[in-house]
């Protein structure tokens, strides 16, 4: 469903992604590990259609992500690292607003179910988001992505700010989504979470895919050692 073929992107002559090739199939969760500036966010932005690759193909469901960004974006559920919502709206109101923009009209109870599924306590649903913690905002952001009922999910540090319990709930949720046939690409620094939830893992360094492996092949500790070795060298 997600296909990146020899994609490269430079900013002011500095390469951000170099000859990246990656495929995420239906029902698969792929994790991208890498230090800051490794090219994870650029890769996700190319898939979101916000950045045009200098060369190579970036496609979702056989559609060019940049030239057909309008169509592509309807297919994608996206969770950014920092979910900034409208502070004057409550969690439910924010969720309702973004769902309505996406063309989904849910009843209040359905919206609340999404929030509960994403780990937001019911008593917070009607509070203004200006009173929310980062983690609470993140949960609403996850609910926005899930309520879209997309086929493809792009997650950029989705567990950022989440408490361990919520982070675990997210992992469960992602697994369930993959089981329903969604293709998920998750960029993260969290080696253990990536190891736990992803089927395959790619390590990016200076825009290049330096290692690709099946999560079943390595333990979390081995993965950490491997990752650190790549970062040092």
């Amino acid at each position: 469903m997600i296909q990146i073929q020899n994609a490269s992107k430079s900013f002011k002559g500095k390469p951000a992604v170099q000859n990246l090739t990656l495929q995420v199939n239906k029902g698969e969760i792929i994790g991208l590990l890498g230090a800051n500036g490794a090219g994870k966010s650029t890769t996700i932005n190319m898939l979101l259609g916000f950045i045009k690759p200098d060369s190579g193909d970036v496609q979702i469901q056989q559609k060019d992500c940049f030239n057909q960004s309008g169509e592509i974006r309807k297919l994608i559920g996206y969770i950014p690292e920092n979910v900034n919502l409208y502070p004057y709206l409550s969690g439910v109101e924010n969720l309702n607003y973004f769902c309505t923009l996406a063309g989904h009209h849910y009843a209040k109870s359905q919206l609340q179910d999404f929030l509960i599924t994403c780990g937001l306590e019911p008593d917070a649903h009607h509070q203004r988001v200006s009173n929310y913690s980062k983690g609470m905002r993140q949960k609403v952001g996850i609910a926005i992505a899930f309520a879209k009922k997309a086929n493809v999910y792009l997650l950029d540090e989705p567990a950022s700010g989440l408490d361990p319990m919520a982070s675990n709930e997210l992992s469960v949720l992602l697994t369930k989504l993959a089981d329903t046939g969604a293709a998920i690409l998750m960029a993260s620094h969290d080696i253990f979470r990536v190891r736990e939830v992803c089927h395959r893992i790619g390590i990016l360094k200076q825009g290049k895919m330096v290692k690709e492996l099946n999560s079943q092949e390595v333990s979390a500790n081995e993965l950490e050692t491997l990752y650190l070795d790549f970062m040092k060298n």
């Binding site: 916000f50 974006r73 994608i76 950014p80 920092n82 996406a102």
Partner: peptide
């Protein structure tokens, strides 16, 4: 600057 623009555009609006 808040990053909401991306979220808004990803809902399918132009």
């Amino acid at each position: 600057q808040s990053g909401r623009l991306k979220l808004l555009l990803l809902q399918g609006i132009t």
